[in-house]
Protein backbone atom coordinates (compact mmCIF):
# COMPACT_ATOMS: atom_id res chain seq x y z
CA UNK A 1 0.00 0.00 0.00
CA UNK A 2 1.37 3.39 -1.02
CA UNK A 3 2.47 5.83 1.66
CA UNK A 4 3.67 8.44 -0.82
CA UNK A 5 2.74 8.98 -4.45
CA UNK A 6 4.71 11.66 -6.26
CA UNK A 7 3.82 12.70 -9.77
CA UNK A 8 5.64 15.29 -11.86
CA UNK A 9 7.32 16.87 -8.81
CA UNK A 10 9.63 19.78 -9.56
CA UNK A 11 11.30 22.22 -7.22
CA UNK A 12 12.97 25.36 -8.42
CA UNK A 13 14.80 27.79 -6.14
CA UNK A 14 15.41 31.38 -7.02
CA UNK A 15 18.68 32.95 -5.99
CA UNK A 16 18.28 36.52 -7.07
CA UNK A 17 17.66 36.35 -10.78
CA UNK A 18 19.07 32.84 -11.13
CA UNK A 19 16.65 29.91 -11.04
CA UNK A 20 18.08 26.61 -9.83
CA UNK A 21 16.05 23.49 -10.49
CA UNK A 22 16.72 21.00 -7.73
CA UNK A 23 14.16 18.40 -8.80
CA UNK A 24 12.65 17.86 -12.22
CA UNK A 25 9.47 15.95 -12.98
CA UNK A 26 10.01 13.25 -10.36
CA UNK A 27 7.54 10.39 -10.24
CA UNK A 28 7.84 8.05 -7.30
CA UNK A 29 5.80 5.67 -5.17
CA UNK A 30 6.90 4.67 -1.68
CA UNK A 31 5.05 1.89 0.09
CA UNK A 32 4.39 1.60 3.79
CA UNK A 33 7.18 -0.17 5.64
CA UNK A 34 9.87 0.29 3.00
CA UNK A 35 13.49 0.98 3.83
CA UNK A 36 14.91 3.21 1.13
CA UNK A 37 18.23 4.85 0.47
CA UNK A 38 18.26 8.00 -1.62
CA UNK A 39 21.68 8.38 -3.16
CA UNK A 40 23.46 10.70 -5.46
CA UNK A 41 26.25 13.25 -5.57
CA UNK A 42 26.03 16.66 -3.92
CA UNK A 43 23.44 18.85 -5.62
CA UNK A 44 21.63 15.89 -7.11
CA UNK A 45 18.41 16.75 -5.23
CA UNK A 46 18.56 14.23 -2.35
CA UNK A 47 17.94 16.79 0.35
CA UNK A 48 15.24 18.53 -1.66
CA UNK A 49 13.40 15.24 -2.13
CA UNK A 50 13.69 14.53 1.61
CA UNK A 51 12.45 18.02 2.45
CA UNK A 52 9.44 17.63 0.16
CA UNK A 53 8.59 14.20 1.56
CA UNK A 54 9.07 15.55 5.08
CA UNK A 55 6.74 18.48 4.42
CA UNK A 56 9.53 20.88 5.18
CA UNK A 57 9.19 22.37 1.72
CA UNK A 58 6.55 22.52 -1.01
CA UNK A 59 7.01 21.61 -4.68
CA UNK A 60 6.99 24.25 -7.39
CA UNK A 61 4.82 21.95 -9.47
CA UNK A 62 3.43 18.43 -9.34
CA UNK A 63 1.50 16.53 -6.74
CA UNK A 64 2.49 14.69 -3.57
CA UNK A 65 0.00 12.37 -1.97
CA UNK A 66 0.56 10.96 1.49
CA UNK A 67 -1.92 8.31 2.53
CA UNK A 68 -3.97 9.58 -0.41
CA UNK A 69 -4.00 13.18 0.88
CA UNK A 70 -2.64 15.89 -1.39
CA UNK A 71 0.17 17.66 0.48
CA UNK A 72 1.09 20.15 -2.22
CA UNK A 73 -1.35 22.85 -1.21
CA UNK A 74 -1.48 22.50 2.59
CA UNK A 75 -0.96 25.63 4.65
CA UNK A 76 1.92 25.66 7.14
CA UNK A 77 -0.16 25.04 10.27
CA UNK A 78 -1.57 21.83 8.84
CA UNK A 79 1.84 20.78 7.51
CA UNK A 80 3.35 21.25 10.98
CA UNK A 81 0.61 19.14 12.47
CA UNK A 82 1.19 16.35 9.89
CA UNK A 83 4.95 16.49 10.45
CA UNK A 84 4.35 16.06 14.14
CA UNK A 85 1.97 13.16 13.82
CA UNK A 86 3.20 11.20 10.81
CA UNK A 87 6.82 12.07 10.11
CA UNK A 88 9.98 11.69 12.13
CA UNK A 89 13.30 13.31 11.31
CA UNK A 90 16.88 12.29 11.95
CA UNK A 91 19.48 14.85 11.03
CA UNK A 92 23.12 14.51 10.19
CA UNK A 93 24.20 16.64 13.15
CA UNK A 94 21.63 14.98 15.50
CA UNK A 95 19.93 18.35 16.17
CA UNK A 96 19.09 17.64 19.78
CA UNK A 97 18.08 20.53 22.00
CA UNK A 98 21.19 21.04 24.14
CA UNK A 99 19.37 22.25 27.25
CA UNK A 100 17.18 19.16 27.46
CA UNK A 101 18.05 15.69 28.67
CA UNK A 102 17.81 12.69 26.35
CA UNK A 103 14.40 11.85 27.81
CA UNK A 104 13.15 15.42 27.44
CA UNK A 105 14.40 15.60 23.86
CA UNK A 106 12.43 12.47 23.04
CA UNK A 107 9.40 13.87 24.86
CA UNK A 108 9.51 17.08 22.84
CA UNK A 109 7.44 16.10 19.77
CA UNK A 110 4.72 14.82 22.09
CA UNK A 111 4.52 18.29 23.64
CA UNK A 112 3.82 19.79 20.22
CA UNK A 113 0.86 17.52 19.73
CA UNK A 114 -2.41 19.45 19.77
CA UNK A 115 -3.81 19.20 23.29
CA UNK A 116 -0.69 17.43 24.56
CA UNK A 117 -0.19 13.70 24.96
CA UNK A 118 -0.93 11.74 28.10
CA UNK A 119 1.92 9.77 29.63
CA UNK A 120 4.42 11.54 27.41
CA UNK A 121 7.19 10.80 29.93
CA UNK A 122 6.44 7.08 29.91
CA UNK A 123 6.24 6.98 26.12
CA UNK A 124 9.51 8.84 25.77
CA UNK A 125 11.16 6.44 28.24
CA UNK A 126 9.88 3.47 26.20
CA UNK A 127 11.21 5.00 22.98
CA UNK A 128 14.59 5.56 24.62
CA UNK A 129 14.60 1.98 25.88
CA UNK A 130 13.83 0.79 22.32
CA UNK A 131 17.04 2.40 21.10
CA UNK A 132 19.01 1.02 24.04
CA UNK A 133 19.47 4.25 25.95
CA UNK A 134 17.27 3.74 29.00
CA UNK A 135 20.30 4.19 31.24
CA UNK A 136 21.11 7.56 29.69
CA UNK A 137 17.67 9.13 29.96
CA UNK A 138 18.82 12.01 32.12
CA UNK A 139 22.01 12.79 30.29
CA UNK A 140 22.28 15.98 28.32
CA UNK A 141 23.39 15.72 24.66
CA UNK A 142 26.88 16.93 25.50
CA UNK A 143 27.22 13.97 27.89
CA UNK A 144 26.48 11.48 25.11
CA UNK A 145 28.65 10.13 22.29
CA UNK A 146 27.73 10.86 18.66
CA UNK A 147 26.22 7.41 18.24
CA UNK A 148 24.18 7.82 21.41
CA UNK A 149 22.96 11.22 20.32
CA UNK A 150 21.81 9.80 17.02
CA UNK A 151 19.97 7.02 18.87
CA UNK A 152 18.19 9.70 20.90
CA UNK A 153 17.29 11.42 17.63
CA UNK A 154 15.87 8.13 16.31
CA UNK A 155 13.89 7.65 19.52
CA UNK A 156 12.58 11.20 19.11
CA UNK A 157 11.57 10.41 15.53
CA UNK A 158 9.71 7.29 16.59
CA UNK A 159 8.04 8.45 19.80
CA UNK A 160 4.98 9.82 18.01
CA UNK A 161 4.60 6.49 16.21
CA UNK A 162 5.45 8.22 12.97
CA UNK A 163 4.59 6.46 9.71
CA UNK A 164 7.85 7.50 8.13
CA UNK A 165 11.27 8.51 9.38
CA UNK A 166 13.32 10.67 7.07
CA UNK A 167 17.00 10.54 7.90
CA UNK A 168 19.38 12.98 6.25
CA UNK A 169 22.88 11.47 6.23
CA UNK A 170 22.31 9.84 9.64
CA UNK A 171 25.75 8.30 9.86
CA UNK A 172 27.84 11.01 8.26
CA UNK A 173 29.16 12.29 11.57
CA UNK A 174 29.74 8.88 13.13
CA UNK A 175 32.66 6.48 13.29
CA UNK A 176 32.28 3.10 11.58
CA UNK A 177 31.27 1.23 14.71
CA UNK A 178 28.61 3.77 15.68
CA UNK A 179 27.39 3.99 12.08
CA UNK A 180 26.98 0.22 11.95
CA UNK A 181 25.11 0.30 15.24
CA UNK A 182 22.74 2.99 13.98
CA UNK A 183 22.13 1.11 10.77
CA UNK A 184 21.39 -2.09 12.67
CA UNK A 185 18.93 -0.20 14.79
CA UNK A 186 17.20 1.28 11.76
CA UNK A 187 16.90 -2.10 10.08
CA UNK A 188 15.56 -3.63 13.29
CA UNK A 189 12.98 -0.89 13.85
CA UNK A 190 11.92 -1.06 10.23
CA UNK A 191 11.43 -4.80 10.51
CA UNK A 192 9.71 -4.77 13.89
CA UNK A 193 7.52 -1.71 13.60
CA UNK A 194 7.01 -1.56 9.87
CA UNK A 195 7.96 2.09 10.02
CA UNK A 196 9.01 3.42 6.64
CA UNK A 197 12.58 4.72 6.61
CA UNK A 198 13.95 6.99 3.94
CA UNK A 199 17.68 7.59 4.22
CA UNK A 200 19.52 10.17 2.25
CA UNK A 201 23.10 8.89 2.12
CA UNK A 202 26.18 8.22 0.11
CA UNK A 203 27.72 6.14 2.87
CA UNK A 204 28.60 2.87 1.16
CA UNK A 205 28.79 1.15 4.57
CA UNK A 206 25.00 1.37 4.87
CA UNK A 207 23.88 0.37 1.46
CA UNK A 208 24.23 -3.37 1.92
CA UNK A 209 21.44 -3.26 4.49
CA UNK A 210 18.98 -1.35 2.35
CA UNK A 211 16.68 -3.18 -0.04
CA UNK A 212 15.61 -0.23 -2.19
CA UNK A 213 17.96 2.33 -3.61
CA UNK A 214 16.95 5.46 -5.48
CA UNK A 215 19.71 7.27 -7.29
CA UNK A 216 19.31 10.92 -8.20
CA UNK A 217 21.35 12.96 -10.62
CA UNK A 218 20.72 16.55 -11.64
CA UNK A 219 17.31 16.50 -10.00
CA UNK A 220 16.07 13.40 -11.76
CA UNK A 221 15.72 9.78 -10.65
CA UNK A 222 18.19 7.87 -12.76
CA UNK A 223 17.90 4.57 -10.96
CA UNK A 224 15.33 2.98 -8.67
CA UNK A 225 16.23 -0.59 -7.84
CA UNK A 226 14.93 -3.09 -5.36
CA UNK A 227 17.14 -5.90 -4.20
CA UNK A 228 17.35 -8.27 -1.30
CA UNK A 229 19.18 -6.73 1.64
CA UNK A 230 22.17 -8.60 2.99
Amino acid sequence: MALYELSGISRTYHMGEIAVTALQAVDLVIDIGELIAVMGPSGSGKSTLCHLLGLLDAPTSGQILMDGQDLSTLEEGRRASLRNQKIGFVFQDFSLVPVLSALENVQLPLMFHAGGVHHSGRRAAEALAAVGLAEHAHHRPNQLSGGQQQRVAIARALVTEAEVVIADEPTANLDSESAAGIMELIVKLNAERKTTFLLSTHDARLLAHIPRKIVLRDGRIVEDRREAAS
Binding site: G77, A80, R83, H113
Partner: peptide, 16 residues
Protein backbone atom coordinates in the same frame (compact mmCIF):
# COMPACT_ATOMS: atom_id res chain seq x y z
CA UNK B 1 17.80 29.60 14.34
CA UNK B 2 18.85 26.06 13.50
CA UNK B 3 17.27 24.81 16.71
CA UNK B 4 14.10 26.64 15.71
CA UNK B 5 14.27 24.80 12.39
CA UNK B 6 14.53 21.47 14.22
CA UNK B 7 11.59 22.29 16.47
CA UNK B 8 9.55 23.35 13.44
CA UNK B 9 10.49 20.11 11.67
CA UNK B 10 9.27 18.19 14.71
CA UNK B 11 5.91 19.90 14.36
CA UNK B 12 6.12 23.07 16.41
CA UNK B 13 4.02 25.71 14.66
CA UNK B 14 4.85 29.36 14.15
CA UNK B 15 2.84 30.41 17.24
CA UNK B 16 4.70 27.77 19.24
Amino acid sequence: TREIGTLRALGLGTPG
